[in-house]
């Protein structure tokens, strides 16, 4: 399949890229790893007169901890996350997530920033970033701004990014001691979108009670979902089986999945419940709790 004709631009700096996007307007799309965008263009489900490739802009692929944040560069690839010692040692929730995105070949091209900026509720990083309380850094004609992840996903395939803004970095607050996280996904086969998936990030207090918790859900509605009722319920509670089950049910209640070949509404909602329970339990174990 051949996409409709477009022109390709490869700016060497962020300033050039933003200026191009501003000049080209709505007819331009940002190309990062291209593993979502190029299939869309080939299937002609999407259309663009211009692609602005940010993949050749230097300095956007670092994965580092600095000033209290884990910083993931806007064009860092999923494969970079998987191979990062920092991620492997300190952020198993991100490793869980990267490892179930598409397949290893796609992950050699696909970027973490693109996974968020595409605005697809079936993508996996949104739930994880909601659980981690991430922020997205965007560069546009008016300079740089920071967008909390809770305000980033505005609709189906829609985000808070303005047309001439580029996602340049993802910032995740470095979790305090006794923290842990996990992402659990049910997929029919490698490369499939989630039937359901859940991310949980917890911090435990002196007595093993939950003092901080974030829960995100994948492919459970028109946007990625932050399960706030479940989070509130768990605050200051011991994460015993009963509390986890009650929180998992609250998370499932917050979903509005659509029926498709992956399952019925009832099935997907129940899988969201089961997977939320497993994600919380694994997160608590990784935080050093029971």
């Amino acid at each position: 399949m051949i996409p409709s004709a477009f022109d390709y631009h490869a700016p060497g700096t962020l300033e050039e890229a933003v200026a191009l996007l501003e000049r080209l307007g709505d007819d331009a799309k940002v190309l990062s790893g291209g593993q979502s965008l190029l299939p869309l263009l080939k299937l002609r489900l999407g259309d663009a007169g211009h692609l602005v490739d940010i993949g050749r802009i230097p300095g956007l692929t670092d994965i580092t901890e600095a000033d209290g944040y884990l910083r993931i560069g806007g064009t860092a690839r999923e494969a970079d996350l998987e191979r990062s010692d920092l991620i492997r040692e300190k952020y198993p929730i991100l490793l869980d997530t990267a490892a179930v995105i598409a397949d290893p070949l796609v992950r050699n091209r696909a970027t973490v920033g693109g996974n968020l900026a595409h605005g697809d509720p079936a993508n996996d990083h949104p739930a994880t970033m909601l659980a981690l309380g991430a922020e997205v850094v965007a560069r546009g004609p008016d300079g740089e701004r920071t967008i909390p992840i809770t305000g980033f996903f505005t609709g189906l395939f829609a985000t808070a990014l303005a047309p001439a803004e580029i996602l340049t970095e993802i910032r995740i607050p470095v979790p305090p001691p006794r923290s842990g996280g996990a992402y659990v996904k049910l997929e029919r086969k490698v490369g499939d979108f989630a039937t359901a998936a859940a991310a949980a990030q917890v911090t435990l207090g002196e007595q093993g009670e939950i003092v901080r918790v974030g829960i995100g859900l994948t492919n459970a509605g028109p946007t990625p979902i932050k399960a706030t009722a479940a989070e509130r319920y768990l605050q200051r509670r011991q994460p015993d089986a009963e509390a986890v089950a009650a929180a998992a049910q609250l998370a499932a209640d917050a979903t509005s999945p659509s029926a498709d070949r992956r399952g019925s509404v009832e099935y997907k909602r129940d899988m969201a419940r089961v997977l939320t329970g497993r994600a919380i339990t694994r997160a608590v174990q990784r935080a050093g709790g029971q």
Binding site: G34, Q35, L43, V106
Partner: peptide, 20 residues
């Protein structure tokens, strides 16, 4: 459609799907 991998080539040594 980026699924099957028959088009896999190495790009700077890394396997990628050359249809994408």
């Amino acid at each position: 459609t980026t699924h099957c991998g028959a088009c896999t080539v190495l790009l700077d040594g890394e396997p990628v799907k050359s249809c994408t």
